[in-house]
Design a protein around this nucleic acid. Sequence first.
DNA 1: TACAAATAAATCGCGCACGATTTAATCACA
DNA 2: TGTGATTAAATCGTGCGCGATTTATTTGTA
Lengths: 145, 145
Amino acid sequence: MLDRALTLDELLCFALYSANNAMGRLYRPLLAKHGLTYPQYLVLVALWQQDGRKVGDLGLALTLETNTLTPLLKRMEVAGLLQRHRNPEDERSVIVSLTAKGKALEETAAEISRCIVASAGDDLVELIALKERIQVLAKRLHQAE
Amino acid sequence: MLDRALTLDELLCFALYSANNAMGRLYRPLLAKHGLTYPQYLVLVALWQQDGRKVGDLGLALTLETNTLTPLLKRMEVAGLLQRHRNPEDERSVIVSLTAKGKALEETAAEISRCIVASAGDDLVELIALKERIQVLAKRLHQAE
DNA sequence: TACAAATAAATCGCGCACGATTTAATCACA
DNA sequence: TGTGATTAAATCGTGCGCGATTTATTTGTA
């Protein structure tokens, strides 16, 4: 038998799903001008914050495994955005470092982000509050795995 | 130059991205027991609400285009969950109808949803409020396309 | 009644996400 | 010091999402 719980969670998950899809559709054409995909953009954001990270540490930051990251990083290396080198201190790990081209994109990213914020809403305080609630949700879901 | 706007939108979009990924990872093993993927589950939810819909109408409900839906629906048809028939009144459109097997899964879906709700949080009122805020965001992003 | 425009779905190619497995390097400890 | 366990990344196969294009049917209109 069905109860009210079905409707709730189903819609919460679908709200997330459709909002995330919509966000991706909004970013896609803006990023495509710079030859980037949305996950690649997120990798750049992570590296702008801290360059020279191990693949595994990037995975922790982005909540992605190497089965997703490795091919993604290889494409970005081919595109000249970053370099991958085995860690001399531990040859099991791989260090990811931005190239000048990868670093330079940080400037243009600011412009893209302004478009997104403008589309998301006019109340920055409320957007920040929403973001924080979604982060809490993501953390709970992640811990429940 | 960078300003505070970059940090905000980047984190809002990443919060959505990671929460959606986490939700998918939570659903995946539960749905896999019934041979379903997460988007396939959403299609079923849409059809449980209203059966016998055109592909295009399903796309409106799920905010997906036929390039995503057609192969997805074909896999579901192969799995015996639904049937696809050309609309006799307008042979351009295709009607999607649940099979008995597809209808029967509605029972088990309630159980799955209870697991998800339990993982998402303990305050149902707050979860509903969050869901509604995310829906508003999704609508704004969709309209901005 | 032809025939261009429109509409609906399907097709194609690419890049994710992820479960499962494999390969390679390091560690632990007998 | 050797060898099994652990760790880190890579590899493989499947199913999305979506931009771009194609195919098939209907509509509008001269």
